[in-house]
Amino acid sequence: MDGTVFPLFRLPDNALLHVLRSMEELSLIMFSLISNRSKTLTISANFKPENDLKVLYAREFTFELHLANRDGIEFSLYDRRLRNRSSGRLPIVDLSHFVFSTVQADQYRKIDELIEYKESKGWTARQYLLHFLDILHQPDVYFYYRDPSFSADSVSKTMKGVTVKRLCTYGEFEFEKTMKALNHPSEIWFDIDPFTSHESLSKCYIQNLDYLNLAKGFMVKLDDLLLMNCKNIGAYSRLREKHLNIYIRSWLQGQKEELEHVCLVGHRVYCGEVDPFNKEIVLKGLKYTTVPDDVERLFYFILVKFTEFPAVVIYIHH
C-alpha cells in the first residue's frame, strides 16, 4: 500500500455507496466502527446478515454472524491487559459497565487471519450490541448465556430494550429475571436444568413459546408434556408407548391447539442403545399412514432423516 490516502468521504454519495457495497463484510463492519459517519454510511449500504446475530455472554462478549458467502465471523470483545494476566480469560466482571479495549475478528476456518482492532471509544458491551443491531438492520438476536457467574441484573443492564428471539443457556441462571431482562424470548434452549423446584419448572412449561428445547437432563414425562403450551417442542423422554398414545390422542382431540411439532428422543438412544417402541400400542385407536424410510421431514428447522433414526424418533405432524 502506498502512503497516499483515498479520501472516501469526499466522494459523491453514489460512488461512496458503491465502494462500500464492494467491500467484503468484515471490512464493512470494521469500517462501521471507525466513526459516527462511517456507521451511518454502513447503515445506508443496507448490509444484512443471512439470518441472525448470536450474542455470547460469557467472560468475553462475543458476536457471531453467519453470512451468505462465507462461513461466518466472530467478534470477541475483551481487554487485552486483563486477558494476558488471566491465562487467556477475562476475570468475572460486570459486563454492563466493563469497557472493552480490544475487538478481535475471527473468520472461521481462517485461523491465521485474525484481525484485531484496538478500541479507543471506551465502549461497553451494550454499546457494541446497539452498534451491531443498527448496522445490521435489527436482525433476530440469539442470546447464549454461557457463564452462570453473571447476574440477571448485569444481563439486564446490557440487554435493556433489545428483544431477544432465542435464549440458549449453559448453566444455572435466574430464569424469571433473565427472561424479563431479555424481553421474554420466544424460543428457549436449556442445556441443563436451571430450576430448583418442579413448580418453577412448571411455570416455564406453561408459557406460550414458539420453541422449547430441553437437553437430556430434563427427561420429560407425560405430565410435563401436557403442561407445555409451546408451538414446537424438542426433548428427551422416557415416555412409554401407552403414555405416548395418550399424549397423541389429547393432541388430536384439540387440547394442544398451539402445538405444531414435537420431537421426542428416547434417552437410551443417546447411549447407543435402541429400545424400539411397540407401534401397535403407540398408535392404538389412531388413524395413521406409514412414512417410507427414505422420507425426510423438516422439523421446525431440524431435518429429520428417518433412515438415520429408524426406531427412536417418532415424528408427529398434526
Partner: peptide
C-alpha cells in the same frame, strides 16, 4: 479500492 481494504483492521 474495496479489495485494497480487505483484511485491514479498523
Amino acid at each position: 479500492m474495496a479489495s485494497r481494504i480487505t483484511g485491514k483492521s479498523a
